[in-house]
Simulated assay, not measured.
Amino acid sequence: MIADEATARSYVASLCDDTAMQKLDQFVDALIAESEQQNLIASATIPILWQRHIADSAQLLEYVPRGTGLWLDLGTGAGLPGLVVAIMRPEMRVDLVESRKRRIEWLERMRDELELDNCEVIGSRLENVETVPAAIISARAFAPLDRMMAVAERFSTRDTLWLLPKGRSAAQELELLSVKDRKMFHVEQSRTDDDSGIIVGKLARK
């Protein structure tokens, strides 16, 4: 398990190039500064920001081959995991869905400052977003699994991979799905927390 900041940083560096690491450093500095103005991340996580937020987001890339199509990040908030993915995979299109005004402004500023041409900020409730087929759907803290599936399944195809960090509730949330859908998903152990899991799978009914 990734248990400290040095290990977290080394792990992230193993998944991207030096340019991405420089942008991640810039992002981390900006995230800490902005968190004094709005509640982007819990203040208790700032001393372990690389472990708790950056590596926690970056680990999702291990499930995604390079060259994959659209990555749709729901309720992206501070840009976790969406901005981290966009920084580390500049060849991949990443759409960030966020409805809160101040966070939309933050995401747009980060996209521009970090020159993330592959990233689009969609400032809207998910219900109002135009339907497009996504290769990857992620959500770190969007809604309980059953509710999220109900509003997001229209973006999913038979091949869409769902990557859903769910913390300690991962196994419990799987029980919210129908038996058929539940068989198509499983829980992977998080690299950053022994008690946390990532729900991974594809929708059976698509």
Rank of each mutant, 00 (worst) to 15 (best):
L114K: 09
A171V: 08
Q51G: 08
Q26T: 15
A42D: 04
L61H: 03
V28K: 10
V94S: 07
E108P: 00
A6H: 09
E113L: 13
S10R: 14
R103E: 06
T157W: 14
E173K: 02
R191K: 15
I137A: 10
V151N: 04
E115N: 13
A78W: 05
A8I: 07
D112C: 07
K183S: 14
P90C: 04
T19R: 11
R66C: 11
D146N: 09
L83H: 01
V179Q: 14
S178C: 06
T7S: 15
G123P: 05
L24W: 06
G167M: 03
G67Q: 09
A6M: 07
L83W: 02
A135F: 06
L174P: 03
Q22I: 06
D193N: 12
L49T: 10
S35K: 04
A78T: 09
R158H: 11
T19C: 07
R154N: 10
E91M: 02
E62K: 13
I199A: 04
S43D: 12
R111W: 01
A44V: 14
G79C: 05
M92Y: 01
A58G: 08
S156I: 07
V85E: 10
G79S: 08
S138A: 11
L163M: 09
I2Q: 06
E91A: 13
T68Q: 09
S10K: 13
L164P: 03
S169L: 10
R168W: 00
Q22M: 11
R168F: 02
S43A: 15
P133T: 15
T68M: 06
R205M: 13
W162M: 12
R100N: 14
E113W: 02
F155P: 01
N128C: 05
W50M: 01
H53Q: 04
T7V: 13
A58P: 03
I198L: 15
L60H: 02
D159T: 10
D29T: 15
L49C: 06
V97A: 07
L70K: 08
Q59V: 11
G201D: 03
L31S: 04
I2D: 08
S35C: 07
G167Y: 06
G82Y: 08
A13H: 08
Q59P: 00
I46C: 03
R103G: 03
P144I: 11
A139C: 12
T160W: 07
S14P: 00
S178I: 11
M110K: 08
F27M: 06
S196H: 01
D193I: 00
P90H: 06
V121W: 02
A139K: 13
E36F: 03
N118P: 03
R89P: 00
R191I: 13
Q37Y: 00
G197I: 01
M21N: 14
E113H: 05
G75T: 10
R147T: 15
K183F: 02
L60A: 04
E36P: 03
V97D: 07
S196R: 01
S99D: 03
E188D: 15
